[in-house]
Computed example of a mutant assay.
Amino acid sequence: MSDGRTGIQNQALGLAEAVARLTPADIAIKPVRWRPLFDRWPSGLKTPAMLAPGSFDPRVVTDWPDLWIATGRASLPLSAKVRDWSHGKTFTVQTQDPRWRNAAYDLIVAPAHDGLAGDNVFEIVGSPHRITPSKLAEAAPAFADRIDALPHPRVAVMIGGRSKAFDLPGVHAAALAEQIKAAVQAAKGSLLLTFSRRTPEAAKAVMTERLSALPGWIWDGDGDNPLFAMLDAADHILVTEDSANMATEAASTGKPVHILPMIPLKPAGKFARLHADLAVHGAARPFDGTLEPWTYAPLNETERAARAVLEAMAARG
């Protein structure tokens, strides 16, 4: 359950897929969207009558699921009432910090860097996601013609963008591009780069211009997303510091994760705590302009959360 945005949906779907790897399960993806007039209303004022056409509608459900996994603000008005609507049949899991009616959910799978506490809170490093070694390997053949001939070390670069906490103006993007180019050239390697939906156009343009001469592939957004194949092929992964999802996904590969600095708009707070947690695990270090290799056990917090969900369900009976 989510509003359908990829970064949000993948948290719920990734956790659901991890549960399904541990026990037989059917997964249904349901969107939760509100009519524009009501979308920004407080969660406590929303009712099913305000849902947008095509959204999941609890008023027509006749057989509630065993497990409800939801992510994001849009899902909260429904998640908080599922136990009542299902007469206790459905076990409700909310990922992220709901920041509203936290006792209404059977389990909250929350990032440790949020500092959330409670009897129904299960903390993990970062966020749930869909990446597994098998998924990465499965994605690789479709992009083999673009990647297999590239020289090692292959450097996957995941660029985010402007958020409440960070910005990526063109001047800073240019400086990052020059650092990345120098590191790849020094290592005689190649580049695999993707931008996010939040990457400013000026940053995209300047980074593409300055990095396009390197051996590799800068994905322009056309066609199928090659991210999983890029992560599979990479020897190093560089991620901007603005995204907990990107850093956690990168750390699940067991490959060196280099954190790229951005322009802070406010104190780093939870992002600094996440990067510290990843550093303690051995996964991530600040990018220093070099591509020194290191190893660590791949971070597998999504499966750990899935086991906690199943144990909590069993305990409740």
Rank of each mutant, 00 (worst) to 15 (best):
P200V: 12
N10V: 10
P298I: 05
R83Y: 14
G160R: 03
P48W: 02
T295E: 09
A156I: 04
T92A: 00
G88M: 00
D97H: 07
K46W: 05
S86C: 00
G223A: 07
V155R: 00
K46D: 13
R83N: 11
L260P: 02
F56V: 01
G14N: 04
A174H: 14
R33Q: 08
V61E: 00
V280R: 14
N300F: 13
L211Y: 11
V121A: 12
M246V: 06
G289N: 05
I237N: 03
W217F: 08
A234H: 05
G223L: 09
F228V: 05
W219T: 03
R33A: 12
T295R: 08
H275Q: 15
A140V: 10
A279E: 10
L291C: 12
D119R: 14
Y296H: 09
G160C: 06
V280P: 03
T62F: 11
P128G: 00
I27M: 10
M207T: 07
G88A: 02
P133T: 04
E311I: 14
I237R: 01
I180D: 02
I263W: 05
V19T: 01
L45D: 07
A276L: 15
A25M: 12
E292P: 12
A156E: 01
V19N: 00
G7F: 06
A173P: 11
E303W: 14
A74W: 11
R33G: 04
P298C: 12
A308M: 11
A175G: 13
D63W: 04
A250W: 04
A12N: 06
E138R: 06
E138I: 06
P264W: 02
A140S: 07
E241N: 14
T295P: 01
A12M: 04
A173D: 07
A112I: 04
I237C: 08
K135M: 12
I27K: 12
R273M: 13
L67T: 00
P141F: 09
F287N: 06
T62S: 11
A117D: 14
E138Y: 15
G54Q: 15
L227I: 13
R101W: 05
L150G: 03
P42G: 02
L76A: 06
L150E: 08
N245E: 15
L150F: 03
W64V: 00
L168G: 05
A186G: 15
R99L: 15
M246C: 07
R35H: 15
G254I: 01
M207L: 11
E123Y: 09
K204W: 05
A306F: 12
A308S: 10
P286A: 15
R146I: 13
V157E: 05
A177W: 03
I147C: 02
L78F: 04
E311C: 09
R5F: 14
A213W: 06
K266N: 07
A12C: 01
M50T: 08
L37G: 11
G289T: 03
A52Y: 10
T62A: 03
T62V: 08
K46R: 01
G88D: 00
A49D: 15
A213I: 09
A70W: 09
D242M: 03
H129G: 11
P226I: 04
A251Q: 07
